[in-house]
C-alpha cells in the first residue's frame, strides 16, 4: 500500500495549476482533500504520474450567495458545510448532507468539489447536485471556463463530463426559498460508510399543495438517479403521509438497482421505499 512513483507540484494560483495540468493532462491528477485519490494511489489502482496539489491556491474555498443562486467553491471542506450558518432550506440540506460524509477526519480534509469530480453515485454531494440541477464550473488553460449542468455532468461511476485538463472551480445551486423543504435519509451498515441507498428530496409546498418536487436517489444506479416517477406523483397533489408512500412506491418501481454483498436489487428497492418517505417527512415539518 505504497503509491507508485509520482511527481508532485504545488502551484500557488489557479492559472499556474491549469498550466501544470495542461502539460500532461492524461497522466495528471488534481489533489484536493485526497480522501479518495490517496487511498486509490496507495492501492495502486490510480497511478498518476503527476499530482497537482491545489491546496495552496487562494479563493477556492467558501460559500457565497449570488442573486438567487448559492455558489460553493470547489475546495470547500465537508466540515465547513456541516458548520454552515445559512438558515435556509438549502443550508439545512447541506448541513445534514455533510454530517453523513464519512467521519470527522474525512470531513476535515475532504472537499465538496472533490467529491463531485470523483463521481461516486453514493456520495451525498453528487446526490445534492443531481437533486438541485447544480451547475458545475470548470476551467482549462486551453478552453477557459465552461459551465456544465448536472444532467450532463455525471456520466457513470467515476466518470464525468470533465476533460482531463479541466479543474472544477465552483458549483452553483439554486437558493431555495422558505417555501421549500429539504431532506436526506440514507442507510449504511455502519455510521460513516458509503450509503447502500440514499434518498434526497426538495419539495415546495404552498397552501398544502406540492408546487415543485425533486427527488434524487443514490446507490441505485451508476450516477445520481432523479426519480421522474416520484416527482410526478408528488407534483400538484395535496401533501400527506400517504402521498409520500405513493411517491416512494413509484420511485421503487422506477429504479433498477444493482446487487452486491451489502444487499440485492430487491432489498435496495425496499430501502428506497423505506428511506424516501423519511427524507421527505423531514422535508415538510
Amino acid at each position: 500500500m505504497k503509491p507508485a512513483n509520482f511527481e508532485y507540484v504545488r502551484p500557488a494560483s489557479l492559472e499556474e495549476a491549469l498550466v501544470e495540468l495542461a502539460k500532461d493532462p492524461d497522466e495528471s491528477k488534481v489533489l484536493a482533500g485526497g480522501q479518495s485519490l490517496v487511498p486509490m494511489m496507495n492501492f495502486r489502482l490510480a497511478r498518476p504520474e503527476r499530482l497537482i496539489d491545489i491546496n495552496r491556491i487562494p479563493l477556492l474555498e467558501g460559500v457565497e450567495s449570488v442573486g438567487d443562486r448559492v455558489v460553493i467553491r470547489a475546495r470547500t471542506r465537508h466540515l465547513a458545510l456541516q458548520n454552515l450558518s445559512m438558515s435556509t432550506p438549502l443550508g439545512s440540506l447541506l448541513r445534514t448532507g455533510a454530517a453523513h460524509v464519512g467521519h470527522l477526519p474525512i470531513r476535515t480534509r475532504g472537499t465538496f468539489g472533490g467529491s463531485i469530480a470523483h463521481c461516486d453515485a453514493a456520495s451525498e454531494w453528487c446526490l445534492v447536485a443531481g437533486l438541485l440541477d447544480a451547475e458545475m464550473t470548470v476551467r482549462s488553460q486551453a478552453r477557459g471556463t465552461r459551465t456544465i449542468p448536472a444532467s450532463d455532468f455525471f456520466w457513470s461511476i467515476f466518470t464525468t463530463a470533465m476533460e482531463p485538463d479541466e479543474i472544477l472551480t465552483e458549483v452553483s445551486l439554486p437558493a431555495l426559498d422558505d417555501s421549500y423543504r429539504t431532506g436526506i435519509a440514507e442507510f449504511a451498515r455502519r455510521a460513516g460508510d458509503f450509503a447502500i441507498v440514499a434518498a434526497t428530496g426538495a419539495v415546495q409546498v404552498v397552501d398544502g399543495v406540492v408546487r415543485d418536487a425533486r427527488v434524487c436517489l443514490g446507490g441505485v444506479s451508476e450516477v445520481p438517479f432523479r426519480s421522474a416517477a416520484a416527482e410526478q406523483v408528488l407534483l400538484g397533489q395535496e401533501w400527506s403521509p400517504r402521498l409520500l408512500r405513493d411517491a416512494a412506491e413509484a420511485a421503487a418501481d422506477e429504479v433498477d438497482p444493482p446487487s452486491d454483498s451489502h444487499g440485492d436489487g430487491e432489498y435496495r428497492r425496499d430501502l428506497v421505499r423505506a428511506l424516501l418517505p423519511r427524507a421527505l417527512a423531514g422535508a415538510v415539518r
Binding site: F187, R189, I196, R245, A248, H262, G263, D264, Y267, D270, R273, A274, P277, R278
Partner: peptide
C-alpha cells in the same frame, strides 16, 4: 445478521412489505 436478512424476516413477520 445482515440487514437484508432482518428486513426480509420483518417483512414476512408482518405479512406484507414493511415500510417506514
Amino acid at each position: 445478521i445482515r440487514p437484508q436478512a432482518v428486513h426480509d424476516l420483518a417483512a414476512r413477520a408482518t405479512g406484507s412489505r414493511a415500510t417506514g
